[in-house]
């Protein structure tokens, strides 16, 4: 998967994994407090936060695997920092990353406009929900309640991860530190065209 990647892209991707691992962990604790009071529904509307690194990294690097790997890594970092849900978080990271990756693979890694990024966020939401359905035993809950959870999660993926991820990557591009990555090159060719 890493063939054709430059080393600096791999390091950048790993660093994103680390930074967002911390951000994820922070929100995990906030979410946990919420969930105690409101129940599993508390997580759903903010679920997009946990998909965001896939979108940012893919939007910047634009190579196959750029969505799956950082998400997996971020989850692994959460585990390594020692106080998260543990190794099963890595599993959910892989699944969320695959969901986002699937959306980009559908367009053959050619288009990276807002709609595709939102689709990727929604994809991560769908994949993670299917996994959660199995693991947390949502099957035992009322179907209409499950449908509500599902809609909230997909919407949150599209809005928080899709739009939010693009916003963060674009502001990063504006700082000029992303020169030399695919996103800056694409920007240039757009200007020329």
């Amino acid at each position: 998967m890493l063939k054709g990647w430059k080393l600096k892209e791999i390091v950048l991707m790993s660093l994103f994994g680390v930074v967002f691992g911390i951000v994820y962990l922070l929100f995990l604790h906030i979410g946990n407090l919420w969930a105690g009071i409101i129940g599993p529904l508390a997580y759903e509307w903010m679920f997009g936060i946990w998909f965001i690194v896939s979108i940012i990294s893919m939007y910047i690097i634009r190579k196959p695997g750029a969505a799956l790997l950082p998400e997996t890594l971020a989850a692994a970092i959460e585990v390594m920092l020692g106080n998260a849900i543990g190794p099963r978080l890595i599993l959910s990271g892989i699944i969320q990353g695959l969901g986002a990756e699937a959306a980009f693979a559908l367009t053959r890694y050619r288009h990276f406009h807002l709609a595709i990024l939102m689709l990727a966020g929604a994809g991560a939401g769908i994949f993670s929900f299917v996994y959660g359905y199995f693991l947390s035993g949502y099957a035992a809950l009322d179907p209409s309640f499950v449908a509500l959870m599902f809609t909230l999660r997909v919407l949150s993926g599209a809005i928080i991860a899709g739009i939010g991820g693009k916003y963060i990557a674009d502001s990063l591009l504006a700082t000029g530190s992303l020169r030399g990555y695919a996103i800056a090159k694409a920007e240039k060719s757009d200007v020329r065209a």
Partner: peptide, 9 residues
């Protein structure tokens, strides 16, 4: 993040 990107490079 901008600082992190430069460090990664």
């Amino acid at each position: 993040l901008a600082g992190a990107v430069r460090k990664a490079e």
